[in-house]
Computed example of a mutant assay.
Amino acid sequence: MYSFLEKLGSLGSSRSETISSVSEDNNNGSMATIIVPDVVPSPVEDCQRLHKAFEGLGTDEKDLIKVLGHRNASQRKEIRETYLQLYNQSLIDALQSELSGDFRKAIVLWTMDPPERDAKLANEALKMCKKGVKYLKIIIEIACATSPDHLMAVRQAYCSLFHCSFEEDIASHVSSLPLRKLLVGLVSSYRYEREVVDLAIANSEASTLNEAIKTKKLDQDHVVWILSVRNFYQLKATFECYEKNYGNAIDKDIKSSGKGDLQNLLGAAISCIELTEKHFAVVIKESVAGLGTDEDSLTRGIVTRAEIDMVRIKEQYRLLYKGSLDADVIDDTSGDYRDFLMTLLGKGI
């Protein structure tokens, strides 16, 4: 497999090289695992079917899965709008009142508008962050594993839902100044999305990052500046220059420099930027490993990526763990929750 820099060309040039091109894969739809039928019923028909599933003595969960689990984000938006018009009730509220447990959490998150969903996940993570830095990794994912336009939409949704800015809430909940600086810097970013890479800058900033790691000064402003301002292609080139010039992957050197919360979040940011599908493969594996299941992490990993890059995540999972993501999810879940997750993974009802 060619490295990112090999795709750009030789590192041997003594002058600055800038390469600009259209992103290799602007449309990740082919990497989605949800299955949308060739002929999709009208939003009215879908709403009537959903409403019927809520009627009677018990809810028909299977019918909810068959409709919502096979509709993309724009189709789900039409369904939400139509349901409100037809029945004068929010579909989200109906799901909340009729369902329970992990299945309810999963299908409600899936049915929500994706920016609102991420805003909700971020808000919950900030409320929980005193219990551990792992919750702040959710904010890292939103900032570093989504498009600039999506991050902007999340920030707008956050203001509408919670009556304060995303950045303001981070500042009020995260007491550590270095963590606060990093998170605010990342969520405030609006990166250039097309492929533009300057190899001279990549080498220079790899050196800057190496010096910060060696001197254990990861909280310096220029570290946050590099990670939050540069486009993702530029950062991938910087990380490859780092490994080429200093012998280790940058995330490995960060881990070796200490085991604090800042190192933990920096490692998560680099993981999301460098190979997003690997990051989420690890999230899902850790959620099902051991005696219990971390349903919240499992739900987040599948629901937020099923129509983006789950095909790639499955492949990374197979490479990392020599096993099937689908099989592990089946083994660790049950009932309607399992049926719904497997539907999003392209293997359900």
Rank of each mutant, 00 (worst) to 15 (best):
residue 3 S to Q: 11
residue 4 F to L: 03
residue 4 F to Y: 15
residue 7 K to A: 08
residue 8 L to R: 05
residue 8 L to G: 07
residue 20 S to N: 05
residue 30 S to N: 14
residue 32 A to R: 13
residue 35 I to W: 09
residue 36 V to H: 02
residue 42 S to T: 15
residue 46 D to I: 09
residue 46 D to Q: 11
residue 48 Q to V: 03
residue 61 E to A: 09
residue 70 H to F: 03
residue 83 Y to N: 09
residue 88 N to C: 08
residue 89 Q to K: 15
residue 92 I to T: 10
residue 95 L to R: 06
residue 97 S to N: 14
residue 103 F to S: 05
residue 121 L to I: 15
residue 123 N to H: 15
residue 130 K to Q: 12
residue 132 G to D: 07
residue 138 I to C: 12
residue 150 H to D: 09
residue 150 H to M: 09
residue 153 A to T: 04
residue 161 L to I: 12
residue 162 F to L: 02
residue 164 C to S: 13
residue 165 S to H: 05
residue 166 F to Y: 15
residue 181 K to S: 14
residue 191 R to T: 06
residue 197 V to F: 01
residue 199 L to V: 06
residue 211 E to Q: 13
residue 215 T to R: 14
residue 216 K to C: 13
residue 220 Q to A: 07
residue 225 W to R: 01
residue 229 V to H: 07
residue 233 Y to E: 05
residue 233 Y to G: 06
residue 243 E to A: 11
residue 245 N to C: 08
residue 245 N to S: 12
residue 252 K to I: 09
residue 268 A to P: 01
residue 272 C to T: 09
residue 279 H to M: 08
residue 288 V to Y: 09
residue 292 G to R: 07
residue 304 T to M: 08
residue 305 R to D: 08
residue 322 K to R: 15
residue 322 K to F: 13
residue 325 L to T: 05
residue 340 F to Q: 08
